[in-house]
Design a protein around this nucleic acid. Structure first.
Length: 545
RNA sequence: GCGCCCGUAGCUCAGCUGGAUAGAGCGUCGGUCUACGGAACCGAAGGUCAGAGGUUCGAAUCCUCUCGGGCGCGCCA
């Protein structure tokens, strides 16, 4: 069964073609079909006539009138009336019958409603967090984790095949440096300059057996391994799991190693050259501002060599799309990563480099200080402990990833109407309570019997159905724009639409039974969609609160 | 110096692949309540969309410049 809004869109396009005639050139873009903010602009509005007007060399409102006639004929009983408005918009007023069909569609889709709606399915790799294993995960990582995880959930939902990946920087001088810091603590000495401070270093020094006496490389490796385990545990508690934990070190093992293999590919592509004893990558050819060293004159590989090898590894795993969710301080990385990818012969359109902006924590109007230097920063664990997983994920996700955000810890913990996450969860719990009151048998009966025909609907019932019908498109747009925060907005608006319906209409024990069935069925559809949207954010949908 | 992100209501932010009177939450002010969960609902006040040009029938949205804020620019990772 086709989605009713898709059918509407098709009807508009058919009417457009009919109005334009077969010999007219195609308009420059597809007509929009949107839900106007104002009720007197109809249930849906389209700019089709305004797109057609230049093609037909006629006044937009005249075209609109013709189009209106076509649409009236094409849509039949679905349409109550159509109006020409403003510069040539067509406002469509749909019948209650159309809305009832809409609800029937939602119910028929069941758990699948809105899923698998992506225009093309891709094999996607989402790499996120990838925090250095030399310190605890902090609030910035929390935002990255919440976003990457929700994006991965969203991708899966719309039909992509998703791999979630964490890149472990367990190679290079930082590991040795970390080892020296832990060893110094174990020996009761001062941490070396540029070393790692913070209580967790002292804790590691106690936990690693023989930390004071063993070779410093071993201490470093073990400390890193323990930090990775801690990150894994913290992320698990935050509701985030990975399919692949990819070790940077593994790129330097074997013969040829991943790095050597990457260099071979670059050489085949003619993208590298030797100068001043070092091996350089010709990234300027691909828009970088300067060429980059990948192998130092000492023979050591730079971290960039690892990045190249890693990118090549991903390419060879056959992903259609590779998403990197990067911290705010990584935008310098974008140009050279894109260049490196092209230097390997890759298509840069398959690469998505997303930058997460900063998080500022606020408590009672005061900024919470986050000084990494002093080893004082709010960790992911502390954030979860203070405000809980649901509130943390909601507040980290309800804003666009490319804007800095403030999270008010007090608002996030307040269990009241001020707090949007509770508002949405409350709507879900309230539906659960209403359905409990109706009883399982009654609810199953209402859903199974199908949506009754011939009911006259209340505006808030139409509004709720309309909001539900928007879900598949919302999910696809959020996915295509990497705009996870739209899911949060949608969840909130859906909760509002349900709450308005609940205010206006008694659900259980209303007469006649067909009306009760309809309202129960509508509640079931709303509950399922709220739960789904919350699940994509990683926020729970409680049966009671 | 070069580059990236941002600048929209008192605050926090949506809206940005161009559409009608620019929205939400919080805050402020004023109301509502014997239906299922008041963690609710209704209403009001509040905006030169940083500024200036440009493109367009139409610009918060696209382009250019200016101003302001954040961040980044290593043979460190």
């Amino acid at each position: 069964m086709a989605h009713p809004v898709d059918e509407l869109r098709d009807a508009v396009e058919r009417a457009s073609s009919a109005t334009a005639g077969s010999d007219a050139p195609a308009p420059k873009s597809r007509p929009t079909l949107e839900r106007p903010r104002q009720a007197d602009h109809g249930d849906y509005a389209t700019n089709a006539a305004m797109l057609l007007a230049p093609v037909m060399k006629a006044a937009p409102r005249e075209v609109a009138s013709k189009l209106a006639e076509e649409l009236t004929a094409g849509l039949g009983a679905s349409l109550d009336r159509v109006e020409v408005a403003g510069p040539g918009f067509l406002n469509l007023f749909l019948s209650d019958a159309w809305y009832l069909d809409g609800l029937a569609h939602v119910l028929a889709e069941g758990d699948r409603f809105g899923s698998g709606s992506a225009p093309v399915f891709e094999k996607v790799d989402v790499e996120f967090v990838s925090a250095n294993p030399t310190g605890p995960l902090h609030v910035g990582h929390a935002r990255n984790a919440a976003y990457g995880d929700a994006l991965a959930r969203l991708f899966s939902f719309v039909g992509h095949d998703v791999t979630r990946e964490f890149y472990i920087n367990d190679f290079g001088s930082q590991v040795a440096n970390f080892g020296r810091s832990v060893q110094a603590r174990a020996r009761g000495e001062e941490v070396p300059e540029d070393g790692y401070v913070g209580d967790y270093v002292a804790t590691l020094a106690l936990e690693i057996e023989g930390a004071a006496t063993r070779p410093v490389e071993e201490v470093g490796d073990e400390a890193v391994a323990m930090m990775v385990e801690r990150a894994r545990a913290s992320l698990h508690a935050f509701g985030v799991e990975f399919d692949v934990w990819f070790s940077e070190k593994s790129l330097h093992r074997g013969s040829p190693s991943g790095v050597e293999h990457g260099f071979e590919v670059l050489a085949e592509q003619g993208s590298s050259y030797r100068s001043e004893g070092a091996l350089w990558l010709r990234t300027t050819e691909f828009g970088d501002d300067k060429d980059r060293v990948i192998e130092r004159s000492t023979g050591e590989h730079t971290y960039f060599a690892s990045d190249i090898a890693y990118a090549q590894n991903k390419r060879e795993r056959g992903f259609d799309r590779m998403v990197y969710v990067l911290g705010a301080d990584h935008h310098g990385y974008i140009g050279r990563m894109r260049a490196a990818f092209q230097a390997l012969g890759g298509d840069p359109d398959r690469l998505d480099l997303l930058i997460m902006q900063f998080v500022h924590l606020v408590r009672a109007g005061e900024k919470v200080s986050m000084s990494k230097r002093a080893g004082e920063f709010v960790t992911l664990d502390e954030l979860v402990e203070e405000i809980g997983v649901d509130a943390a994920r909601w507040f980290l996700l309800n804003r666009s990833h490319d804007t800095t955000i403030e999270v008010d810890l007090q608002l996030a913990t307040s269990e009241s109407s001020e707090n949007p996450v509770y508002y949405v969860q409350y709507a879900h719990a309230r539906i659960a309570a209403v359905l409990r009151k109706a009883g399982t048998d009654r609810v199953e009966g209402a859903v199974a019997s199908g949506v009754p025909a011939g009911l006259a609907l209340h505006p808030s019932e139409r509004a709720l159905i309309s909001k539900l019908l928007a879900w598949p498109q919302e999910a696809v747009e959020a996915s295509e724009r990497r705009a996870v925060h739209r899911i949060a907005s949608y969840a909130y608006e859906l909760a509002q639409a349900f709450t308005a319906f609940y205010r206006d209409s008694q659900i259980v024990d209303v007469e006649p039974p067909e009306l009760e069935s309809f309202r129960i069925a509508l509640s079931v559809a709303a509950q399922g969609t709220i739960a789904r949207a919350l699940d994509l954010l990683g926020v729970s949908a409680p049966q009671e609160m």
